[in-house]
Design a protein around this nucleic acid. Sequence first.
DNA 1: CCGATTTGTCACTCATCGGTGAGTAACAAC
DNA 2: GTTGTTACTCACCGATGAGTGACAAATCGG
Lengths: 220, 220
Amino acid sequence: MLNDPMVLTPIAGAPRAEPEKRVRDRGATEKAILKAAKALLAEEGFQNFGINAVARRAGCDKQLIYRYYGGLNGLVEAIGADLGTWVKDKIPEDTGGMFLLTYGDLMERLSLLFLEALRDDPLVRRIVAWEVSENTEQVRRLSEARSKALATWLERMRGSLTPPKGVDVVAVNAILIAAIQHLVLSASAGGQCAGLALKTAKDWDKAATALKRIVRGVYG
Amino acid sequence: MLNDPMVLTPIAGAPRAEPEKRVRDRGATEKAILKAAKALLAEEGFQNFGINAVARRAGCDKQLIYRYYGGLNGLVEAIGADLGTWVKDKIPEDTGGMFLLTYGDLMERLSLLFLEALRDDPLVRRIVAWEVSENTEQVRRLSEARSKALATWLERMRGSLTPPKGVDVVAVNAILIAAIQHLVLSASAGGQCAGLALKTAKDWDKAATALKRIVRGVYG
DNA sequence: CCGATTTGTCACTCATCGGTGAGTAACAAC
DNA sequence: GTTGTTACTCACCGATGAGTGACAAATCGG
């Protein structure tokens, strides 16, 4: 009932003004799309994250996103795949010349490392914000990938150190991680958290000191 | 299914199929709008929060929202006004028969109260999620109202108890609040936080115990 | 060289959004 | 009644969202 396919098409060879020599390379285009999606998510957040925006940013047609990734879901999944290696990439393995003798030593260091890493990764920050704001399949995938990576990282860093007896380490660590994540998100969104300013380096020093004190309090 | 632009409605006085006895009462309408907005925000989150949705839910025309509240901003502001009394309404004043001898006693109790209160207030939960996801004028207003109310509440509950020397209470408390908020948000969105399940009452008991331990650790 | 497939572009539908101008229905005072 | 004000509804606008089918052009297999 709509356009008759045979009718239109005036003259096919319409002269394109400036046909920029665009190389046809599927692999490169796929990478460009993924890169654009990550950058967009990092800069704009999940609010304005959509097919059109990604296509615009990637400088290609949105149709290609459907073709190559099967839509937004697939694209998000591809982002999630990268996320698996986040901690590995972002957080140094070595102990910075310190001797980590106790579990408390370890967790103090890891807390600060995690805080740092999160603080300068806008993409992951946005994803965390997304995680606590929505509960769609997309987000669940991202969240799962992230938390799994985090857990294995924590486990690997623990090494042979044994946590103190009688403490629910999983629960305590979850709370510590929650605190760090929310602190960074709050700061990123409004520059403060529960009355604590979080803008200058000095502000962050105070936060880090308080965090250390808390970790030390619970893990000795 | 809605209006077809081609169908001519002869006279604007379109026949309402059901002559719902709609009372003309500006005050009531305003309240209905506000109520609809809060319910919508609580249930759907800020994602689908807009003029059209609120009007639809309130069962009135969106024009009235512009007229009575000056648009979404004004409406959000009205919601924020209610938020000022949140803690007062939600959290009991009395100490539950306990003697709060130390600052640690107090903060342990307040932490748990805050956790509880946040856990069963979907509206405030959504607002907190909003706070960490966006940075618009709207959200800033809400955030400010909430954090101010929280601060004065904390101050008032402190009474004559003096916090331990040498501890940056503002920073430490901010981190505790951050932890609680993120914990509840995570649970609400995905039923878990950093590998810690947060669904059953038992799960929450574990979280509460861990939280108590942390508070005790830092405040003795 | 030719035909088929891949790669990319365009044009379109349909839905919904925020926002506005213009109109109608109830009600009170005269 | 008539008039004026208040409360409310409707129809439309431009913009933008996701999604789809058709087609041009580059590339490849032969």
